[in-house]
Design a protein around this nucleic acid. Structure first.
Length: 835
DNA sequence: ACCGTGTGGTAG
DNA sequence: ATCGCTACCACACGGT
């Protein structure tokens, strides 16, 4: 027993103090008693917090009561009332109103995480990092206010802090980050635990998650002055940033009753309200959500019966226990309710529901049944579960309640079985696996088939039998599809630098990995989509363009990666102003510490790597308005079958890129000064690409490969004229000619070619040039020219006509002139081509 | 038969 | 105003 404890008892024995002082002592006595009780049942206590007096201000997660227990059981003093200044050594709070800030300015005011971390590490960690008024002390409040009000400038992607600032507010980013970090923690925590086996596969699965977690936390931490009468059970409440086209991250059950759903836009939700009912919108409480989740996981991990606590997301976990860990259903139910009670208590009011069954899929469905605020246990193969109950269970789910069935799969199922509404209907209609597989594909068909029988497919079950492996990271990426509005390449290059820096210094560093393969995906505004989409700063409707690049050697060099990205950007036909989204992926992650990769560090493995840089474009099946892709089947459930594509593979060729440079130089002088600046910058990047370490490595690789190739048959050379080149899956040039002709004729009449088609057509022409078949390009150019002449009289003023003229003059003819010295097969074609 | 690339889909 | 992320599986198709 500590001195402090003795002292309290002593003072009390004198028996003549003020009411408050007496009360204080009584409470301290109770705390001691509580501690003793705890010790008598054999639980561990410590003296970690000896000498500290802790006071909790306002609403926190973990809650006041839980903090009380933590403090007392670790030998600290818990102050119930802040009677006189100086009596508390630490004040715990999640946030402080300005008035309290002033009042507490001389205290150590920290967030609850400090306590959690102290106990976890069994030492008093420095409080400064957890201080919640530190920032105010550093900055005079007037400055702070003016800067924060000035901070309300519109989002601007050229701001160096844009990325971080955006992520700070993005719920989806938070979800992804949280998930990744939970997986990482799982790996650390369960590193050495033996894996479960299929053989004794009698496990009970508990699927646990919060009911509308974001909404609950937002409600608990709301500004009570602003919402004095808000009732969580009756008033519809949503969490979002904005007012009209803002996504609803989470809505309470009162809102759900009115048909409001997560993901809906606020404006849409408001239309669903009955007259006189108001929708309350609350801001996100990311930090408090995180705290609540920590309490959630801490509790779950403390329950001995759970073999694993598998993280699904910030608010959702799967607990696996052996079937004989519980005596019977009764005790299991008791456990569930105890867990629910504890979580509610320790998060100050967040509710979890629990679904219990013996497969993942059934536990998940049971969870759906359990919500809101309940437990549901489902026995699949128990005889006692009578048929009626079964039918009722399955009959209460919609098709997309099945895990793995989303928007697209739902559509396929609806198309095939228009009458099927519930899972029960589907169970009766779809008795065999074959028909499901024919609609949904092999794996998904099987998955659905098994799910309807309450069984997990192998892929889903991996989370139970091989979670460590499953949670191991295999790729790293970022996506930014909001707020992207650039003026020119200079700005984009800066942004790519920032992205590269983020990925390399934050992600690769965090996971200690190198990457050897990068994918860049750009979202370009659809031609017919409005420049400003409905959602403020949103991406609107876009066409995607992807390209990937093998680096040849694994690296974590930000410079190399940024340079490569800039280069890749330029291979895609996306003008800076049309860019609406960027995503960058590192696909092949390599562990530099792995002994078998030791040579990688020195770059020695390079010469033995087969890979080279490739860029492989392929058309999107979404370009419906383009005639070349119109061949798509109308049968929606066959959509997954790719029908037409252009597999033209283009090799990044040293010769070609030099020529492209020459081409650029040539036109450089004629450009208006404004554009010239851009081009100048562009050339700088191109040179940098050529100069970079990576490029040199690639060249060396290329040289060696070429040498080997040249020793082999001439016919093997991919530049050989004997290698067929495909366009739109067609190799026969005559057929391609007629296809192109149709395409030109069609699009002259309208708005000109679809940019994607044009992109692939250009690639095809480039490929022809590179393999000494410029005469084909000549034929095509000639044909287009003739067509233009024929149609000039009727469509000379059409948009498409002008488009094609420009393409011919600005692209095709320069292309031919570029290569005329390489004409080989067609004799003496070195004429200047003119229209 | 197996591998690599690009596309689609899903989850929270 | 508004913060439309991101990991991972499956598939189609082409190359070897």
């Amino acid at each position: 027993m500590s001195n402090k404890d003795n002292k309290v008892t002593e003072e009390n024995s004198t028996g003549r103090y003020s009411y408050f002082y007496n009360k204080k002592i009584k409470q301290a006595e109770q705390d001691i008693k509580f501690r003793k009780q705890y010790e008598t049942i054999g639980k561990q206590t410590s003296q970690l917090l000896k000498g500290l007096t802790i006071y909790v201000n306002g609403h926190t997660i973990p809650g006041r009561l839980q903090i009380h227990d933590m403090v007392v059981l670790n030998g600290g003093n818990f102050l119930h009332h802040l009677s006189s200044k100086g009596s508390a050594t630490h004040i715990i709070a999640s946030s402080l109103p300005p008035k309290k800030r002033l009042e507490f300015k001389n205290y150590k005011v920290i967030n609850p995480q400090w306590l959690v971390d102290c106990i976890k590490q069994q030492k008093i960690v420095p409080w400064q990092e957890y201080s919640i008024i530190k920032s105010d002390i550093e900055q005079p409040s007037i400055l702070k206010i003016s800067s924060s009000s000035a901070n309300k400038t519109p989002p601007n992607c050229n701001d160096p802090n844009f990325l971080i600032d955006y992520f700070k507010h993005s719920r989806l980013h938070h979800l992804s980050e949280w998930k990744a970090s939970l997986r990482q923690k799982f790996i650390e925590l369960y590193q050495d635990i033996p894996l479960l086996t299929h053989s004794n596969s009698s496990y009970t699965i508990l699927h646990i998650d919060f009911d509308c977690f974001f909404a609950t936390v937002a409600y608990l931490f709301r500004d009570k002055k602003k919402f004095p009468t808000l009732d969580f059970d009756k008033d519809p409440i949503v969490v979002c940033h904005g007012v009209k086209n803002s996504d609803i991250a989470s809505c309470n059950y009162a809102a759900r009753k009115l048909g409001i759903k997560n993901g809906m836009w606020v404006g849409t939700a408001e239309k669903m309200l009955p007259n006189g009912i108001k929708l309350t919108t609350l801001p996100y409480e990311f930090e408090n959500i995180d705290n609540g989740s920590k309490a959630f996981y801490t509790i779950l991990q403390s329950i001995e019966q759970f073999y694993y606590v598998l993280p699904v997301s910030i608010d959702e976990a799967i607990c696996v226990m052996s079937k004989n860990a519980m005596e019977n259903k009764q005790t299991l139910l008791q456990l569930c309710n105890a867990v629910r009670q504890r979580i509610k208590h320790e998060t100050s009011g967040c509710i979890v529901s629990i679904g219990v069954s013996d497969s993942l899929v059934l536990a998940r469905l049971a969870l759906k049944m359990a919500k809101p605020n309940g437990v549901f246990m489902f026995d699949n193969d128990n005889e006692s579960q009578d048929l009626n109950d079964m039918n009722q269970f399955w009959g209460s789910f919609k098709l997309d309640d099945l895990p793995g069935v989303g928007r697209s799969t739902l559509k396929k199922l609806r198309y095939k079985y228009p009458k099927v509404k519930t899972l029960q209907d589907l169970r009766q209609t779809c008795q065999d696996i074959i028909s499901l597989q024919s609609i949904l594909g092999n794996k998904l068909g099987e998955k659905v088939y098994l799910a309807l029988r309450g069984e997990d497919d192998e892929e889903s079950a991996r989370i139970i039998y091989d979670p460590i492996n499953m949670f191991q990271r295999k790729s790293i990426s970022i996506d930014i599809n909001w707020g992207i509005r650039f003026k020119d390449m200079v700005e984009i290059d800066k942004f790519l630098d920032i992205c590269s820096d983020y990925l390399v210094n934050k992600k690769l560093a965090e996971y200690n990995k190198l990457t050897s393969s990068i994918t860049l995906k750009l979202m370009k505004r659809c031609v017919d989509a409005p420049v400003d989409p409905p959602k403020y700063m949103g991406m609107g409707r876009c066409d995607p363009f992807t390209t990937s690049s093998r680096l040849g050697v694994p690296t974590n060099d930000g410079g190399i990666i940024a340079t490569e990205l800039k280069h890749m950007f330029r291979t895609l036909p996306v003008p800076p102003v049309e860019l609406r989204g960027i995503s960058i992926q590192f696909n092949k992650l390599v562990d530099p510490d792995d002994p078998k990769n030791s040579n990688v560090k020195k770059g020695l493995s390079l010469l033995f790597q087969k890979d080279q840089v490739t860029t492989t474009p392929s058309p999107s099946s979404r370009s419906i308005e383009s005639p070349l892709h119109n061949v798509e089947s109308n049968d929606p459930h066959r959509k997954y079958k790719r029908l037409k594509r252009s597999p033209v593979k283009e090799r990044e060729d040293q010769l070609e890129s030099n020529q492209r440079n020459a081409f650029q130089q040539q036109f450089f002088q004629e450009l208006p000064t404004q554009i010239r600046k851009d081009v100048q910058h562009d050339l700088k990047i191109t040179r940098k690409v050529n100069d970079s370490k990576l490029k040199r490595m690639k060249e060396e690789l290329q040289r060696r490969e070429n040498a080997i190739r040249n020793m082999n048959s001439h016919f093997m050379n991919s530049d050989s004229i004997f290698v067929p080149i495909k366009f739109q899956n067609e190799t026969n040039f005559e057929k391609i000619c007629s296809m192109v002709n149709d395409w030109v004729r069609e699009t002259i009449k309208e708005k000109g070619p679809h940019e994607r088609d044009l992109h692939f057509f250009k690639k095809y022409l480039n490929k022809l040039c590179d393999s000494d078949r410029v005469h084909f390009v000549l034929r095509l150019a000639d044909m287009i020219s003739v067509t233009l002449n024929l149609m000039a009289h009727k469509y000379g003023n059409a948009e498409g006509f002008t488009e094609w003229e420009i393409i011919l003059i600005k692209f095709i003819i320069p292309l031919m002139n570029r290569n005329r010295h390489t004409f080989r097969t067609e004799r003496k074609l070195d004429i200047e081509y003119d229209i």
